[in-house]
Design a protein around this nucleic acid. Structure first.
Length: 492
RNA sequence: GGGCCAUUAGCUCAGUCGGUAGAGCACCUGACUUUUAAUCAGGGCGUCCCGCGUUCGAAUCGCGGAUGGCUCACCA
């Protein structure tokens, strides 16, 4: 750090810098090497009856300090929560006590002492030895209101985590959700794999990709938008049950439900169809909900949501008929579909096929109504370029999506394993692209070639981890379940 | 990308009609040996988001910009 840096320090920080100098002059190092702690704050509170009058050592950040002259009360915070230290001048001695007196809120300290309960009933540690482990230079946000500025909370998440305990809880829950999912899938015989993030052809979803450049190969690469195609190649290769939990990147708008990078779990199971996957995902999510929340029913944004089996299963066309009165079974051509869309004042592109219009109807009339976990089955083939056609009605696919609280939580289908049909579908997507649809799939020749070697009948699934965590932590925004959400850099 | 709103001390906020900036917490000095947003007395702390303009004078009014929030669009 040079002197120019110090110039940006305000008076509060200059005072703390001076304290560091004073300590070093006394031969005390304010940045310690290590500290042996015996207990977390939570352990002392939970096991108070056994620990009372025993010696313990705790470490953590000073969150509050009440100096009464010859007695100081300090709350320190660690992973387990907060615990109070009771520090007496006559126990520590004058010199050590004066040092503690100079500690600031935000400093990280170690306390060795005996466990007891104060007059007011709070379980505390009566300090015999207090050690400064790391001096804090910047003042923490105010103790009562804490840190509420959302901008700062996301940009300086560490401050958010220090000040807002429920934020820590959210991310602990996130970790539990992922662990429970892994456990479940491993118990079902799935193997976890990792596939490339850098792709030559981004595929597996309808989305605009991020582009980057590889210098020594002198070529552009794309960040993946889905995990799907590499995983299906692994099924071709004989891994019959695989899954990946990985980051996807989509170059699209940011909203309460969308972050440019987000986490998906995708799994593929050979010899299974979409109905097998439906049973699997229903059981898996119920399992996770119970493991994480201890109950089948949760409350999300004031709405009671039950994950108890079975979830409602309804054909997409039936759901549209139920909510909009329009029966697309009666509508045969793109022109008829365009006409009915116009009658309903639904904005669609004039090139849109019947399949896309069905999807538009679904999104407008049905999606917001699907509060309880619901399987929507049988999507039009035009919007499902990687899904197998239904044997009885080849205009539609053996596909389903899971909706909860009006939001898509998962997507699954019987995988298209006919290489000739797959090539045709890619070609149709290329035509859509040529018509200006930037999100249409690109041709993936290598993937078609893999199918030509033979993909067994396979069921596949994708689940949005962030959205699942939102439900289980009652978080209104996806940014509340992503530690460092994408932000514009500050100008300054 | 459009609309609306916000941005003032480290944090949470107030700021009247345009008259040159305030509170609480935090910090500093002093008092206080079981406090709980400890208390009491005193003190210091500002790029009023940035730029331009109007005005004798701008935190306040106008225009442009930045960042964020909400929302619509986009996004299966």
């Amino acid at each position: 750090m040079d002197s120019n840096t110090y110039e940006s320090f305000n008076e509060l920080m200059m005072v703390r810098l001076q304290k560091i100098k004073d300590m070093r002059q006394k031969g005390i190092e304010p940045y310690a090497d290590r500290y042996v702690r015996t207990h977390l704050s939570s352990e002392i509170i939970e096991d108070f009856t056994e620990l009372e009058n025993n010696e313990v050592s705790v470490a953590g950040r000073i969150m509050s300090k009440r100096d009464q002259g010859k007695v100081i009360f300090i709350h320190t915070q660690d992973m387990g929560g907060k615990i109070q230290a009771y520090i007496r001048k006559d126990v520590l001695g004058d010199e050590a006590f004066d040092l503690v007196s100079a500690y600031d809120i935000g400093d990280i300290i170690g306390i060795k002492g005996t466990v007891f309960r104060t007059k007011r009933g709070e379980i505390s540690v009566k300090a015999e030895e207090v050690t400064l482990l790391s001096k804090s230079l910047r003042p923490l946000p105010e103790k009562f209101h804490g840190l509420t500025n959302v901008d700062t909370r996301y940009r300086q998440r560490y401050l958010d985590l220090i000040m807002n305990t429920e934020v820590k809880e959210t991310f602990i829950t996130r970790s539990k959700v992922i662990r429970a999912m892994r456990e479940y899938l491993e118990n079902q015989g799935f193997i976890e794999v990792e596939t490339p993030t850098l792709m030559t052809i981004p595929s597996g979803a309808a989305a605009r990709p991020f582009i980057t450049h590889h210098n020594s190969l002198d070529m552009d690469l794309f960040l993946r938008i889905a995990l799907e195609l590499p995983l299906k190649r692994l099924i071709v290769g004989g891994f019959e049950k695989v899954f990946e939990i990985g980051r996807n990147f989509r170059n699209e708008g940011i909203s309460i439900k969308h972050n440019p990078e987000f986490t998906m779990m995708e799994l593929y199971q050979a010899y299974a169809n979409y109905e097998d996957i439906m049973n699997l995902v229903e059981d898996m999510i119920l399992n996770i909900v119970i493991k994480v929340r201890g109950t089948e029913e949760i409350t999300y944004q004031g709405e009671k949501i039950s994950f108890a089996k079975p979830w409602r299963r309804i054909m997409m066309l039936d759901a549209i008929k139920e909510h909009s009165g329009v029966d697309f079974k009666e509508i045969k051509t793109d022109e008829e579909a365009q006409k009915i869309a116009a009658e309903k004042n639904l904005e669609v592109d004039k090139n849109d096929s019947k399949g896309k219009i069905i999807n538009a109807f679904f999104e407008k009339y049905v999606e917001p109504k699907l509060i309880q976990p619901t399987f929507i089955i049988g999507h039009p083939v035009e919007i499902s370029p990687l899904a197998k056609r239904n044997a009885n009605n080849p205009e539609y696919t053996d596909r389903f999506e899971i909706f909860v609280y009006g939001r898509e939580l998962g997507n699954a289908f019987s995988e298209l394993n006919d290489p000739i049909d797959q090539r045709q579908r890619f070609e149709n997507q290329m035509l859509e692209r040529a018509k200006g649809d930037e999100e249409a799939h690109m041709m993936d020749e290598d993937f078609v070639q893999a199918l030509e070697y033979g993909l067994p009948p396979t069921g596949g699934l994708g689940v949005g981890i962030d959205r699942l965590v939102m439900l289980l932590t009652d978080s209104a925004s996806i940014r509340d379940v992503i530690l460092f959400p994408t932000m514009r850099p500050r100008e300054d």
